[in-house]
């Protein structure tokens, strides 16, 4: 049903085609702290802190960078051990953290990341472990903000396979079989990257990318074992991959699937986030404020993930 709203919205705009910019009084805005933090199995924590901005505020790159918060005290507490996070430049981060940060920023490759003058909070002394709960504590402008997330026991896929799409000779979706644990909430994230080489001799993709609809829960299949598929979310980079098959994987592709689990609060944030992204401003849907798992009035999320990695070689 969610997909109906953007459709109706689009139709309405197509039919009317009568929109104009207006300048109206919006509700008063007071800048709020925004947390964009993550920790996953075997990786260091990464936390980006920024402030929310007025709707009419400037959105050029220098203004955007000025919204980042670089003077906060950031700690992560796990099993009564406290780790202080400090600011890192991109190049100072371990390569795994750089890859994770590039995923978070939804960049196309690591090179794009190197060009960004960003500072992030992290620590090389802390590594995410399954079944641990991590509490993020932030002191900023004399105010405390706290959030908790747990790295859950992962659920691995039973199998991955590729199936030739009828009517094509070399294209197909990625298929998987999942046995969902019964009687518990399970929130999943499906991310992929292709590691087979491109014409330039480099892997097709540097970093993982979430598939369309790739965050989902087990509301409809609790305890079931079933087959499902996802489209290829990556951009069509080589001209021999026909445009009409851009959402398929190609015969010979090697696809690494990163299948992660997250706790319910993180899932709630993600679910509402994607809903807001698809419905924001749409008159057919109610406006949604995204529920943060950070207390103290901050926006954003502190997210723990427990991924499993599996490789799919696209051949029948």
């Amino acid at each position: 049903m969610r997909q109906a709203f953007p459709i109706l919205f689009s139709i309405l705009l197509i039919i009317t085609s009568c929109t104009k910019e207006v300048n109206i009084d919006l509700p008063e805005h007071i800048a709020e702290l925004v947390v964009d933090g993550t920790i996953e199995t075997n990786k260091n924590p990464i936390v980006l802190l920024s402030r929310s901005a007025d709707i009419y505020a400037s959105t050029d790159i220098s203004s955007y960078l000025s919204y980042f918060v670089l003077d906060a005290e950031v700690k992560v507490i796990c099993n009564e051990d406290t780790t202080e996070l400090s600011l890192f430049t991109i190049s100072e981060l371990p390569i795994e953290s750089q890859e994770k940060l590039a995923e978070m920023l939804r960049l196309n490759n690591l090179n794009e990341l190197q060009e960004l003058p960003l500072l992030v909070y992290s620590s090389i002394d802390l590594i995410g472990e399954v079944n641990n709960t991590y509490e993020l504590s932030i002191l900023f402008n004399g105010k405390n903000y706290n959030g908790k997330t747990k790295i859950l026991e992962p659920t691995a896929l039973d199998a991955l396979y590729w199936e030739l799409e009828p009517g094509t000779i070399e294209y197909g979706y990625s298929w998987a079989i999942l046995s969902d644990p019964a009687n518990q909430f399970d929130g999943y994230k499906w991310e992929v990257k292709r590691t087979n080489l491109n014409f330039d001799g480099l892997p097709k993709d540097d970093i993982f990318k979430r598939a369309r609809g790739g965050t989902f829960n087990d509301q409809f299949f609790d305890g079931m074992t079933f087959d499902f598929f996802f489209e290829n979310p990556m951009k069509r980079k080589d001209s021999t991959h026909l445009l009409e098959y851009k959402r398929y994987y190609r015969f010979g592709d090697t696809v690494v699937v990163k299948f992660s689990k997250m706790d319910e609060a993180v899932y709630e944030f993600m679910e509402n986030k994607y809903t807001q992204l698809s419905t924001a401003g749409n008159p057919f849907a109610t406006p949604i404020n995204i529920p943060s798992n950070i207390t103290g009035g901050a926006l954003g999320v502190w997210a723990g993930y427990s991924p499993t990695l599996d490789t799919l070689i696209c051949q029948p």
Partner: peptide, 18 residues
Amino acid sequence: TLPKSWYVQNQSLLFNYG
């Protein structure tokens, strides 16, 4: 109900409604 501010998470531009 319109947003009073915007913020960024995972490079997605999100709204905080008033």
